[in-house]
Design a protein around this nucleic acid. Structure first.
Length: 438
DNA sequence: TCTGGGGTCCTAGGACCC
DNA sequence: TCTGGGGTCCTAGGACCC
């Protein structure tokens, strides 16, 4: 194995584990976390997995049985998960260099040390996260990202590994052939359902068989990604980090889309929702100091409806000048849908996409040209949000506050359903946990 | 009644230019 | 009037990830 291994740290059942941090009474019980609108299961505790509940299951199809099994359900509480994720990442970044935050619950790091020293550091890091945040993580150590994924997965499923596995542990005698022969092709990072089906058609069923394919040939037949995956399985690193030179990661497109609590009929409701999501997207745009040049909006009816045929529309507005002004962007979002809506269709989703992003700093135009007609409003919004929290002020429906905390974003009839939300302990003053010493 | 949200990368194809 | 190949840029769509 090479000298400088890649370390992948990945939280166990992240959302479900987060729910237990401030509510120890749910630890050790079957618990599921649901997607927006309490739609389907997106995270499960070990106990819920043991009951055979699969990820992605629509909640309404298992609700009764789950109640019988005393399964605890929670609406997704992204404020809480985001906050715990940042704490977890921050602790880990102090142990090893080159952290690449790959998703809300996992990060890659580059160890400058040999395997054994890396393993010892990983063990200390793991304990620090458990103690500091209360989240258990599993760690895989390997020469490539693809193999680190495999070792991480192994660490999760084998308690004897005590949360840490290295590729050396698995490949000792036979270059890993036995282990890779036990891994189905679709469990390999980068092989999705479609690709797996095509590969199986060629008789390639397990990871070991894929590893032994000719990379050049497979590149020609499929894609460069597949070639890279093959090389990575052989221990040759060829998937680069996403981090750019500045260290901070900046999105190239910003999408804000939601299913509605209840369907919307007619253009006006859709335009309200598009305007609200445009303003959410705008805040993310400003936070990463970008401007956008194109605003696209799409909306769609339910693909599951038995009565209506599925239909979707989209419209797109090219801005005259790159902008991060919520007044301009929400107006463009409203305009993008104009005249495209079929009045009889029950729409259940709308999304706003900001693309053609440019760095705000590199686009300072001469004031006299008046390119960025910033009304000053966005700065006011920013200040209000900093002082009072998000969703206190905005344009149109975005500025309206509902009554209950579950409906707190706009109070609109179509707002998200989140009926089983736990407290946002770490981000809201009024939802802090209370500790009593008797 | 009720089925998530947010990204990335790659490729093919069209428009345009020389 | 007719004809060619190659490069770049953009967009849409597919596939994948968590």
């Amino acid at each position: 194995m090479q000298e400088h291994p890649i370390v992948l740290a990945d939280a166990n059942n992240f959302y479900a584990s987060c729910e237990a941090v401030f509510h120890p009474e749910v630890a050790g019980k079957p618990l599921v976390v649901l997607s927006n609108n309490d739609g389907c299961v997106v995270s499960r505790s070990y106990e819920a997995k043991a009951l055979g509940i699969a990820n992605g299951t629509p909640w309404f199809t298992i609700r009764q049985e789950a109640a019988y099994d005393q399964v605890i359900a929670r609406s997704s509480n992204y404020e809480l998960y985001g906050s715990l994720s940042r704490r977890m990442m921050s602790i880990m970044s102090g142990f090893l260099p080159g952290q690449e935050v790959y998703s809300i619950d996992e990060c890659f790091m580059h160890s400058p040390w040999d395997i054994e020293r890396t393993r010892r550091i990983a063990a200390v890091m793991r304990r620090a996260v458990l103690q500091g945040v209360g989240i258990p993580v599993s760690i895989g150590i390997a020469p490539t990202k693809t193999l680190a994924k495999i070792t991480n997965h192994w660490a999760k499923r084998h308690p004897s590994s005590r949360g840490i596995t290295t590729w050396g542990d698995l490949s000792r005698d036979d270059q890993g052939t036995a282990v890779l022969s036990s891994i189905e092709i679709d469990d390999v990072w980068g092989i999705g359902r479609r690709l797996a089906k095509r590969l199986r058609g060629l008789g390639i069923r397990q990871a070991a068989q894929l590893r032994d394919q000719d990379p050049v040939n497979m590149r020609r037949r499929f894609s460069v990604q597949l070639e890279r995956t093959i090389l990575e399985l052989r221990g040759i690193p060829c998937i680069a980090d996403d981090n750019d030179a500045t260290g901070g990661k900046r999105d190239c497109q910003i999408l804000c889309s939601r299913m509605f609590g209840t369907p919307i009929l007619g253009e006006e409701g859709l335009r309200q929702a598009a305007s609200v999501y445009a303003q959410y997207a705008c805040r993310r745009l400003q936070r990463q100091h970008s401007l956008c040049t194109r605003v696209s909006v799409f909306c769609a009816s339910s693909p599951f409806s038995k009565h209506d045929q599925y239909s979707s529309v989209c419209g797109s507005i090219l801005l005259q000048d790159p902008s991060d002004d919520p007044v301009i962007i929400s107006a463009a979002a409203r305009q993008a849908l104009h005249g495209r809506i079929t009045p009889s269709v029950r729409y259940v989703r709308v999304g706003v996409m900001l693309t053609g992003l440019v760095d705000a700093a590199s686009y300072d135009t001469l004031p006299a040209l008046g390119a960025r007609t910033d009304s000053g409003l966005s700065e006011v919004f920013e200040q209000v949000a900093r002082r009072f929290g998000p969703a206190h002020v905005g344009i149109g429906f975005a500025g309206i506050r509902g009554d209950g905390r579950n409906n707190g974003d706009t109070g609109a009839a179509w707002a998200m359903r989140r009926e089983m939300l736990s407290s946002r302990c770490t981000t809201r003053w009024d939802e802090m946990p209370v500790v009593r010493a008797d």
